[in-house]
Design a protein around this nucleic acid. Sequence first.
DNA 1: GCAGTCCTTTACACAACCTTTACGTTGGCT
DNA 2: AGCCAACGTAAAGGTTGTGTAAAGGACTGC
Lengths: 231, 231
Amino acid sequence: MTSILMIDDDVALTQLVEEYLQLDGYQFTAVHQGPEGLELAKSNAFQLVLLDIMLPGMDGLTLLKQLRQHSYCPVLMLTARGDEIDRVVGLELGADDYLAKPFSPRELVARIKAILRRVELIQQQQQPQLSSLQINSLRLDSAKRQIYVQDNPLVLTATEYQILELLMRHAGDVVSKEDLSQLALGKRLQLYDRSLDMHISNIRKKIAQYDEAEKIQTLRGLGYLLLQGEH
Amino acid sequence: MTSILMIDDDVALTQLVEEYLQLDGYQFTAVHQGPEGLELAKSNAFQLVLLDIMLPGMDGLTLLKQLRQHSYCPVLMLTARGDEIDRVVGLELGADDYLAKPFSPRELVARIKAILRRVELIQQQQQPQLSSLQINSLRLDSAKRQIYVQDNPLVLTATEYQILELLMRHAGDVVSKEDLSQLALGKRLQLYDRSLDMHISNIRKKIAQYDEAEKIQTLRGLGYLLLQGEH
DNA sequence: GCAGTCCTTTACACAACCTTTACGTTGGCT
DNA sequence: AGCCAACGTAAAGGTTGTGTAAAGGACTGC
């Protein structure tokens, strides 16, 4: 059961959110005071915290800062103002995403799911994994931190290796650019940020040296995909 | 029981509407002051709000804006003028539909039903869904975001996938063009807007590559339909 | 300092995609 | 039958996301 904690002084809003999230099968708890919320969040009993920036008693950003001393529980920030500064500060303090009020329940649910999916991806990464993996003509040797194309070792930079390993470990599934950026580059994907595209381009070039057929597929608007099996 | 709130200072009109809506089995409440209406609407006790643009005490658009900070309760705007500007502003603020006064009670009821039906569709969308689904020779794998025709994977664009998934999840039911447009294209269907028709046409072509018999049926004036079972 | 390596940004080209236009067809209606 | 609105779809148009070369920074080791 996925439990979500909402810290917001707007009681009507928390009730609305509660209805929607329970429809989606989430366990929901709301508190309306900053200090109380901090205590609950620190308990690590929740998989996700929805945090209002404007709180009576304790500012949301302060709360987030204190929470981060104890817990890496994912946090989705909410704010009444479309305030860019809060946004930047919040993301720097370790918020996982940001949503401006007013928001639609649908949008909220979508953001929540995106965060939870990414957390799951990260946890998968951390679990003991196959140290060796063969995808078509690509072979991953994670002990040696080396990837081969038809037994030719690829000369990859650290970032390129991470991206390609991610794609290989999820071969057959689409991996979104947002996920790749957060997991391999360690930053959120910004509008007009092309650096991930460049890494993909470079990886493709290096693979093509040895195997013209082995391709990273592009799924426009969705992400990248390494096809499993025959093509 | 479906409850409808009407915010309009024209008492004669609210009484007229009350008669018609009660005939149709709706619970009806009318208030004639903006602030009072806002409070009631924020309570989320109503499934739909009929909102006059011209209000004493508080402008309808202002009211809508404030309501949207707390609630995504569907709103049908009413206005005395055939004012396009109000219309655009209102829809941007998140009104669900717009009706120019004077209107016929029949038209009003039709609009109300359309909104409620769509809200229900959206709520269905939000509920946990089967990740896999077979409709005749079509198979949906929503985890992989892929649809197969007789085990051949379809190459669909994001929009085409959304449309076909919607049709598959409501196989056996007619899905209106208005609903498809709002849910898959994210915009209201405009007069002479043929883009949805084009998407349907393209989807049909792609399905026909693999199965000539599998057809999306057209129900003239109603929408599209994917037939369940044998045809 | 300088060279080397790597990541990111910039800039432009291109391809994929969505929408509009235009014209043909269909089906319900009187 | 004849009309008209709704629909089918090819082709053109416009928009957006992606591919990639080249330049710009940041960092490291010498």
